Amino acid sequence: MLADALEHLVRGIVNHPDDVEVRSRAGRRGETLEVRVNPEDLGRVIGRQGRTANSVRTVIDAINDGEHTRIDVVDTDRKR
């Protein structure tokens, strides 16, 4: 559910919504949501001084009843 919500939020921000992909990974420190976007949209998702990324993290944490979920934003040029 969190991955779907995150994908919906990010698709509304970017210019290339078809390139948005969210994957969930479980780790020792809990769940990590990895967001892949088109390289042209990377700055849009992060925002000035990380404000947009922090706002997205705040919304996802609120959906998750205040539990912290790590969100990593990467561009689609990086190897998977």
Rank of each mutant, 00 (worst) to 15 (best):
residue 22 V to S: 03
residue 34 E to W: 01
residue 19 D to M: 05
residue 27 G to L: 06
residue 43 G to I: 04
residue 26 A to Q: 14
residue 1 M to E: 15
residue 47 G to P: 13
residue 43 G to Y: 01
residue 20 V to I: 11
residue 68 H to F: 08
residue 10 V to Q: 11
residue 78 R to E: 13
residue 28 R to I: 08
residue 1 M to D: 15
residue 9 L to C: 07
residue 9 L to T: 09
residue 60 I to D: 07
residue 7 E to F: 06
residue 17 P to Y: 03
residue 34 E to L: 11
residue 31 E to H: 03
residue 68 H to Q: 06
residue 38 N to T: 00
residue 59 V to C: 02
residue 59 V to Y: 03
residue 20 V to E: 13
residue 2 L to A: 12
residue 44 R to Q: 06
residue 33 L to R: 05
residue 45 V to H: 05
residue 47 G to S: 12
residue 10 V to D: 13
residue 48 R to F: 08
residue 3 A to C: 03
residue 6 L to G: 06
residue 56 V to Y: 02
residue 51 R to I: 11
residue 76 T to W: 01
residue 29 R to P: 00
residue 4 D to H: 09
residue 47 G to H: 12
residue 19 D to G: 01
residue 63 I to T: 02
residue 16 H to N: 15
residue 3 A to F: 03
residue 57 R to K: 12
residue 12 G to W: 14
residue 60 I to F: 07
residue 66 G to S: 04
residue 34 E to F: 01
residue 4 D to V: 14
residue 58 T to Q: 12
residue 29 R to I: 03
residue 3 A to G: 06
residue 47 G to R: 12
residue 52 T to G: 02
residue 75 D to Y: 05
residue 67 E to H: 07
residue 31 E to Y: 02
residue 7 E to N: 11
residue 41 D to E: 04
residue 57 R to M: 11
residue 31 E to V: 15
residue 20 V to H: 12
residue 36 R to G: 02
residue 75 D to W: 03
residue 29 R to L: 13
residue 68 H to E: 05
residue 53 A to T: 11
residue 51 R to K: 14
residue 79 K to N: 02
residue 70 R to D: 06
residue 80 R to E: 03
residue 3 A to M: 04
residue 79 K to F: 02
residue 44 R to M: 11
residue 8 H to E: 13
residue 27 G to H: 06
residue 36 R to S: 12
residue 40 E to P: 00
residue 19 D to K: 10
residue 3 A to R: 12
residue 36 R to L: 10
residue 34 E to Q: 10
residue 36 R to C: 04
residue 36 R to Y: 07
